[in-house]
Amino acid sequence: MYERGSSALRELAGARELLRNLTSRELKVRYKRSTLGFLWTLLNPLLMMAVFTLVFSTAFKTTIEWFPVYFLSGYLPFAFFQASVMIATGSIVGNAGLITKVYFPRAVLPLSVVASQLVHLLLGIGVLLGALVVLDLASDSADFDFVPYLPVLVLAIVLLAAFAMGMALLFSAGNTFLRDIGEFLPVGFLLWFYATPVIYQVDFLPEDWRWVLLLNPLTYYVQLFRDALYDPHWPAPATVAAATVCAAVSLVVGWTLFVRLSERFAKEV
């Protein structure tokens, strides 16, 4: 039972059972009325991979080796981030009925979205790891020895999840006061996708444009996932540092603003 009037963080800790249940509800409801159900979690990234691989091996003639692996190791974290933020953005406004009727720590709404997306990400990564094992055995030219670098993968997942939580809190609170945010997000994320090296490599970009990638936090997270999966090696300290700083800033800013704005949610939704 959560104590009222205690600090916002303690309140959130007290509501972890609610958070856990909301997360599993999120997972259940999403596929409830589709025949393939949970399989879509895995089918979606695989179909995306098929489309991009087809386009990039015919129309664009990519020089990236093992393009499907390169694509998935970048696309899975990006898709996790995008879905987390986009769904979380509507989570406060979308639960207006609840917010005006019951008091509970509001942060459980966006956070349960991120948590459920995290389950999707882990499943996707699990399938990718399986594929890498098979590729490694089947092909002489493939070298996906990711096992010694699993700590890198864990670090990448933890940091990205923290970054996504901060952003989910920020966008969900912001959207309550300025609904235009939700409207802008689809285009915003399209732009963000092309500004992240998911379908290309950093050095494909003209020198003049590299700064965009350096300013984009997702570059560092995608890089970490690639360091763990596509080309297994220990990441550059600068990448880890940048990813950590972005995650910390996102969490602190997102949480602080959310707590401050959440007092007014019931009047705005």
């Binding site: 039972m1 509501a15 059972e17 249940n21 509800r25 509970f104």
Partner: peptide, 12 residues
């Protein structure tokens, strides 16, 4: 029912 109870602050 479970979610409603949890939102009101009860333990499962």
């Amino acid at each position: 029912v479970l979610l409603g109870g949890l939102a009101m602050g009860l333990a499962p």
